[in-house]
Design a protein around this nucleic acid. Structure first.
Lengths: 138, 138
DNA sequence: CCCTAATTGAGAAATTTTCTCAATTATAAA
DNA sequence: TTTATAATTGAGAAAATTTCTCAATTAGGG
């Protein structure tokens, strides 16, 4: 599995460096939307010397490779999470900001309907759902 | 119409200042997602002395009053647009970033379905659609 | 085990956003 | 209309976020 990821990097002539590996691992392990600073903090536990600029650069690369998704939470700004496989939509916990992915995307159908209704061909859509997860409701 | 808005301010003990009026007018006239800097530039044409900080503060206030919506475009960061009346979703033109509002929100139903499927009560959702508007397709 | 181009760390620089505070002003009350 | 007062503003400083620069390091191919 990390074998596949390695080859994704190499196909682009990019190096699979420990720093990039660490950023990815942090996101894989947490499975939540994380701010740059939290990512940086967690990465430094794996790889102490890592600079903030490198975290920025790694995230940019990972987003380019579509391994990671950059999103916007309601309050603050840029956060990142692992890119879902296939077409999914995130349900973000309003308490702990953990992400639960929802597979069943109904927007495909909606897009067609909207295109008909408005005459505008819908190229893309961005949907996030918000709710309190089971753990946080307990 | 600006009478109603005035009272929305007054109900909160807020002043309906020329600066706030100008920010609102810019958004009303443009009907597109505008960055802070564009808003500031346009506001200064109406009210030359207006400071940037005031634009930030006005927008914050307008968002609090739910007269304005703060959103995130795909590339850059915070942009603002007039809050749609009732529950609508914006279709953002991928070329000119003009906003067309779509009234028929199907997410209400979806939310119920998702809640059932996942056991997570959906409190809120954020949906933006992207497509090229008629003018830009011409 | 080398080469080489990609990447990194560190700090400077640029950009964006917030804060501070004296001066101004919208609004309610007289 | 005038006055009082609390909210608001402008200006610049300060803080926070993001990008850039460049010498030193390193991953990966040969």
């Amino acid at each position: 599995m990390s074998k596949d990821i390695r080859s994704i990097f190499h196909e682009q002539g990019l190096k699979f460096t420990p720093q990039r590996k660490a950023v990815l691992k942090v996101l894989q392990d947490t499975h939540a939307y994380l701010s740059i600073n939290k990512i940086h903090a967690n990465v430094k536990e794996i790889l102490p010397g890592t600079g903030l600029a490198t975290v920025y650069r790694s995230l940019e690369t990972l987003v380019d490779l579509e391994l990671v998704v950059k999103v916007h939470l309601e309050d603050g700004c840029h956060s990142y999470t692992l890119a879902p496989e296939g077409h999914r939509h995130p349900i973000v916990c309003t308490d702990c900001s953990k992400v639960i992915e929802y597979t069943d995307c109904p927007i495909e159908d909606l897009s067609k309907k909207v295109s008909k209704d408005t005459g505008i061909p819908i190229q893309n859509h961005f949907l996030q759902l918000f709710g309190k997860c089971k753990e946080c409701r307990a």
